[in-house]
Amino acid sequence: MNTMSWYPVFLREMLLFRRKLFRVGYLFSAMVVPMIYLVTFGLGLGRTIDVGGMSYVAYLLPGLVAMSSMNNSYSWVSSALTLNRHYFKTFQVFVLAPVSPSAIMLGEVFAGMVKGLFASLLIICTGFLFTGMFVTTLFFLVALLLNCFLFASLGVITGMLAKSHEDTSTYNNFFILPMAFFCGTFIPVDRLPAMLGTVVAMLPLTHTNILIRKTALDNEGVVSLSVLVCYAVVFFSIGSRLIRKYSE
């Protein structure tokens, strides 16, 4: 069955993930960063930010989910792929197997999504502990899944392009970190200077942040949804193509 040929790729990542999960440090570090944001912004700085009537924590939590799922879906895939190609050589095992490049891509992306979703779950739980409630809508779920999918795909792209492990953190500082702060996680995008706002409006996380907070689908929601789908399709095809072109 060719439709399941992504599964061994995914399974490998999950077996590795399971081992990591049991190390005490992992859960702690996955929890601690969003907690810091939640405390410093949500309960401290954030009180001064006007988010249109709602409580700031209620505004911040979905944003933290978007940001964390981006970070976790992206970074794991990107750095693991770089290491697996350059240092551990384990990527050869996939390339030498009779599976299609898109199956390898799909396996890696699904694995990245699991890590993103896992981190999101931790935040949802944390949020629940802090506020006693956490509203999740259908849009929340769709936005979250698309966000994980597209950033895991982007992780494959940079993981395939990076020439060394240092490159990975360069990409991270250039693309991922700015998105975390400017794309509507902490403050609404319309609060940004106009020029920055135009750039930000083109970035995927902005649209995840829009869609993830919707309670009903309006025009803005449809636009964001379409943008996310486009990013997902484009990133996925570029990633598959890079795997197809892979040569040592």
């Binding site: 061994p8 551990f88 050869q92 095992v93 009779p98």
Partner: peptide, 22 residues
Amino acid sequence: ENNLDRELSAYENLLIYGLLHR
């Protein structure tokens, strides 16, 4: 150059390879 998965067991390494090759 060894390209085994260091963090997996011998069995798991063979399992993944075997599944990849059906």
